[in-house]
Design a protein around this nucleic acid. Structure first.
Lengths: 210, 210
DNA sequence: TAGATTGTTAATCGATTAACAATC
DNA sequence: TAGATTGTTAATCGATTAACAATC
């Protein structure tokens, strides 16, 4: 098995293709070409074929790709042929939104524990999961074999939360706090910065030739 | 003024530098080198200098950059030396989280109108802004000179929401629905897909040599 | 066979890194 | 002046696009 370096942009697009294939499959369409996929998601056909080619040969020349088959392959590639146990830390408005976000469960991300330090929140049940004090994080997340931690706490508590998640043995962390976190290299870290997205927009608006 | 094409990655990093400079300035530090910034945000010093060089010469050789001065310049570049009037559509849990998100107001993004079609939500006041029916969107957003629209509605309503925002004359749209939207080229569009972020993580976890 | 579409290579384009002259 | 650090160029690395042979 060759381990070519895969561009992250390719992974993001695979995720988008996959969602598109869900739609296409729902419509009962059996076969799809790279051109069809490309049109559906707004990239070039060559890009679609190139992205898929990193992982194997999934199509038939002259015909295209079998929708169900390709979809299965992409889900497998993305690691979505299994469920993932997720721990969410921080039950503010963002935490609540993430907990109830349909897109997570649909893709196999199951929130199995929730932590917050607010005594008013501890003990309440959100989406079927009881909110526990952050003190319990390491113990509970370990016991649950939690694989992914989501940080939705205020920035000043983000690093200590990350430390606890690492101690609990998570493999990956998704961080919504706009700070740079330090985690050991064996833990995958990804940052989502909501304000940055608006700032890219305002930069683009500002530099538009008009 | 030369209009070199600026990488989007540069814009994202400028946003990160800017947030770091807020911290540094708060500590009372007056001068900072590209190496200090680099260390603070986890990139290389050359990258910092290159990013800044797209926009001018902000430092002093042998000395570094004046913190306040550089910060002001970056904010100006990002279009943050003015406030932006933002309209939020969809007052679900995500909409609520976005409305109360401190990071937006801090950076000059002011949510001036909120729309939802749920009669139970219409008329309520969230963070000082009254929720209005989506029917009113075009009229109200126009009257407010709304510049940015945020889409936080279920996927199946995302395109019609985008259409209304375009009709209202917004310059940019931030879309949280995991669908591909069509908007005219003069409207800037950016998609935030929360599930994709988790999928990049699970892909990386799955392909780790271990 | 003729038409269609993949998989893959080569060419192009773009972004990052390294190195260093300029200069405070 | 000596030391430090920028701004910028050249070299490297990586990703996208175009083209086309393979093949259904």
């Amino acid at each position: 098995m060759k381990t070519l370096k895969i561009p992250e942009a390719t992974i993001i697009r695979l995720s988008v293709y996959s969602r598109h294939l869900t739609e296409v499959d729902r419509k009962g369409i059996v076969t799809i070409s790279s051109g069809d996929i490309a049109e559906g998601v707004g990239v070039s056909p060559a890009q679609v074929r190139k992205d898929l080619a990193y992982f194997g040969e999934f199509g038939t020349r002259g015909v295209g790709y079998n929708v169900k088959d390709l979809h299965r392959h992409i889900l497998k590639i993305l690691g979505l042929s299994q469920d993932w146990s997720v721990s969410l830390v921080g039950m503010g408005n963002l935490g609540l939104a993430l907990t109830t976000y349909k897109g997570f469960r649909e893709r196999g991300f199951i929130i199995t524990s929730i932590f917050d330090n607010d005594p008013k929140k501890v003990g309440t049940v959100v989406n079927g999961v009881e909110v526990m004090p952050v003190d319990k994080l390491v113990e509970v997340a370990k016991a649950n074999k939690t694989q992914i931690g989501i940080i939705a706490v205020p920035s000043q508590f983000a690093q200590e939360t990350a430390d606890k998640l690492v101690e609990a043995g998570v493999q990956a962390i998704l961080n919504f706090a706009p700070v740079v976190l330090n985690v050991p290299p064996e833990v995958e870290l990804r940052n989502v910065d909501l304000a940055v997205n608006l700032e890219v927009l305002t930069f683009n608006v500002g530099t538009r030739r008009s």
